[in-house]
């Protein structure tokens, strides 16, 4: 997976350890110490940076795991640690003043003052913005931010402010903050019934699909429910975020990096998406104001998107 991203042209790759210290806590993902060392060497040899995600919220009785993840990151010599928990950031900043710290999207910082807190207290140098700001709001924030900003460019569309969504723990007991997982696979159940194929999350019906419909993963915020007398995707349709067309605006705003979600995906997905983005960024560098999104990029990204639809999400005001 990491190799797929490196080979396809990513500038930096996020990795996480095999435990609940990062927000992609799923079977088969993430690294043990030895794999992490090998992967970092692979990326380094190709001048690609490695960021260690330690971005869940630490539990009091097991804080040593988060500390250990920070210690290991320092030892491995990663290019940055990305964290959200104030206790974890404090530990890293105190123990390793030279360690480059980024604020995870789970830190939910959406304003200059919130960013200031993390910059002042822990010397955080970059923050990933939650997917709740419109493009003009991103620009305004970037113009005044005390630190570098990174935004989500492509992947799943979290529609709630990250780090502040407890829908998953309300239904399953496990949330991104506490466990590093949303709508976890262990809670999913499928049932074939006379009224269609039903998807459940911890026994709660999320959606029901007719025979000719593509049945999507039962992410809590993307099911069909009833509100105000209608049955529809009350919170959001199964779509993916795709911001290729915003590249010029994001660049002009001074956004230093766009983030592509990849760790829950196949190497083929990662490779395809990263290649398209690399090509688009290079094309933009060359063409600047004449930049246009190419049809085959959109087709390539559309074919790997959830529900085969893409959206600009909160960057676009009408979405809100």
């Amino acid at each position: 997976m990491l190799r797929a991203a490196v080979d396809a042209g990513a500038d930096a790759v996020y990795i996480g350890l095999k435990d609940a210290t990062n927000a992609r806590h799923f079977a088969g993902l993430n690294f043990n110490d030895r794999q992490a060392r090998q992967s970092i060497a692979y990326a380094r040899d190709r001048k690609v940076k490695v960021f260690m995600a330690i971005n869940t919220y630490a539990q009091p009785d097991t804080m040593h795991r988060w500390h250990r993840a920070v210690d290991l990151s320092q030892e491995l010599g990663v290019d940055a640690v990305i964290a959200a928990d104030i206790g974890v950031l404090a530990y890293a900043a105190n123990k390793y003043p030279q360690l480059n710290l980024h604020l995870s999207v789970q830190g939910s910082a959406t304003s200059v003052k919130a960013l200031e807190f993390y910059a002042n207290e822990f010397g955080v140098r970059r923050a990933v913005l939650p997917r709740v700001l419109s493009l003009p709001q991103v620009k305004q924030l970037a113009a005044n931010s005390p630190i570098d900003l990174e935004v989500f460019g492509f992947g799943s569309l979290c529609i709630m402010a990250e780090g502040r969504c407890f829908l998953s723990s309300y239904v399953t007991g496990e949330s991104p903050n506490t466990f590093g997982a949303c709508s976890p696979a262990s809670a999913v159940r499928w049932e074939e019934t006379d009224s269609g194929r039903e998807s459940y999350l911890n026994g709660v019906l999320i959606d029901r699909f007719a025979a000719d419909e593509k049945a999507g993963y039962p992410t809590l915020c993307k099911g069909r429910f009833r509100a105000n007398g209608e049955q529809f995707h009350v919170l959001e349709e199964p779509t993916s975020l795709n911001t290729l067309q915003l590249i010029p605006e994001l660049d002009k705003a001074g956004i230093v990096a766009v983030k592509i979600e990849g760790r829950q995906r196949s190497p083929a997905y990662v490779s395809r998406v990263v290649k398209v983005w690399r090509e688009a960024l290079q094309d933009y560098r060359r063409t600047q104001s004449a930049f246009t999104v190419k049809r085959d990029w959109m087709d390539a990204l559309g074919s790997v998107s959830e529900g085969a639809q893409t959206t600009l999400g909160a960057y676009s005001k009408p979405w809100q």
């Binding site: 997917r131 709740v132 709630m160 829908l167 809100q320």
Partner: peptide
């Protein structure tokens, strides 16, 4: 009732098919 999540999107407006603005 427990506050569980916050979004850029207004779900009440969406249920009325209205834009947030």
């Amino acid at each position: 009732r427990i506050p569980l999540a916050y979004s850029a999107r207004c779900y009440t407006a969406r249920a009325y098919n209205l834009p947030k603005d």
